[in-house]
Computed example of a mutant assay.
Amino acid sequence: MGNDRAFTYNGGAVPPGETQNIRYGISETYLGDPVRIPVTIVNGERDGPTCFLTAAAHGDELNGIEVVREVAHEWDLSDLRGTLVCLPVLNVPGFLAQQRYLPVYDRDLNRSFPGKPGSTSSKRMAHRIYANFIEPCDFGIDFHTSTRGRTNMLHARGDMTDEGVYRLAMAFGSSVIIDSDGPSGTLRGEATADGIPTITVEMGEAHRFQRRLIDDALAGVRSAFAEYGMLETESVRWPGWRTIVAGSGEKTWLRADSGGIVDTHYESGSLVQEGERIATITNPFKEDAVGVKAPFTGLLIGVLENPVVYPGNPLCHLVEVDESTERVLESETTVSGTGSR
């Protein structure tokens, strides 16, 4: 069935069968020059859903940028069913400064959606992004990384009580899904509330490209496109094992109770048993060692990369897994030899 719908935004339109690369103005600098975000819109010749892919809402989170760019500019989308809206760098000011938040304004763009005209700088930016490129979509994937000094294993986050989000998260095919509402002002939370099922994909750490994670995320996008019939040659993937960490499930950021230098004994993605020592904190003389133990058996989805802490600093993000997942992970550890370092 042919596509007879142009994708329209304030200032332009993309007819069926065309691709446009645009730089869309969302604000202005002190000098009155435009602040413009890059957008690629691929409108397929055949009918189908409209999907957005977004990255770098936090300007130092780079892995997702490469995922969105490769989908937009390296994939063969000649047989695309529907429309693809790619926004690889939402927070251009933060990206240029290589910092998380909007510089000068010191606001979190990912707490400013859906935005509001006539409001703060961050909400005005968010409004122009949301109204033009998010609201017209049927579903979306928003890519993030951990903040500076930490790293995340690749996992999805979304409100799994929402049928559309459940479908999308399962289709993306990550082994770990955290079932949670997006905080107020987040792109995924606000879009989902508006009837646009959206998941967040967390992957790796800030300030770098991590090829293995990028490739894994690209496989997830292909799987999602297969689920929605956007690319017929693809199939929905099964990750081998999966755990959904429900809101009632146990999960915690373990925090340092003393300052010092940290020796982390496990990598992100490792299974740790209740009572096992995850990390050790010592002073510069390697005295007064303080062990940090797992309060329950679970999966480390995030760990500290910068090995120095003050009391209260996060060390690792531990989530509970069910017994069947635990058995699979123990089997993988035995085969691959991964785990404690």
Rank of each mutant, 00 (worst) to 15 (best):
Y101D: 03
S78F: 12
I129H: 00
S122L: 08
K123M: 14
G82T: 04
D162S: 12
Q98P: 00
V89A: 08
A156M: 06
G164V: 05
R111M: 13
S78D: 15
D142M: 12
G158M: 12
F133I: 08
T161G: 09
R148T: 11
L87E: 10
P114D: 07
R81I: 01
F95G: 03
S112W: 03
G94T: 06
D159T: 01
L109T: 06
R81F: 01
C137K: 07
A97E: 13
P103D: 06
F113R: 07
L84P: 06
H127F: 15
V104R: 14
S119K: 04
M125L: 12
I134R: 02
I134S: 04
R157W: 04
D159R: 09
P136C: 10
G149D: 05
P136E: 03
D159K: 03
H144W: 10
D108V: 02
S122F: 02
R157T: 08
R128S: 04
R157I: 12
D106T: 04
T120V: 10
P117L: 14
R128V: 00
C86A: 14
D79A: 14
G158N: 08
P114Y: 09
D142K: 11
S78L: 12
S78I: 10
D79Q: 14
I141A: 08
T120I: 09
F143A: 07
Y105P: 01
N152G: 01
M153C: 11
A97C: 09
Y101S: 00
Y101E: 07
H127E: 11
H155W: 14
S78T: 15
G115Y: 03
D106S: 06
T151M: 08
Y130W: 10
R150M: 14
D108S: 11
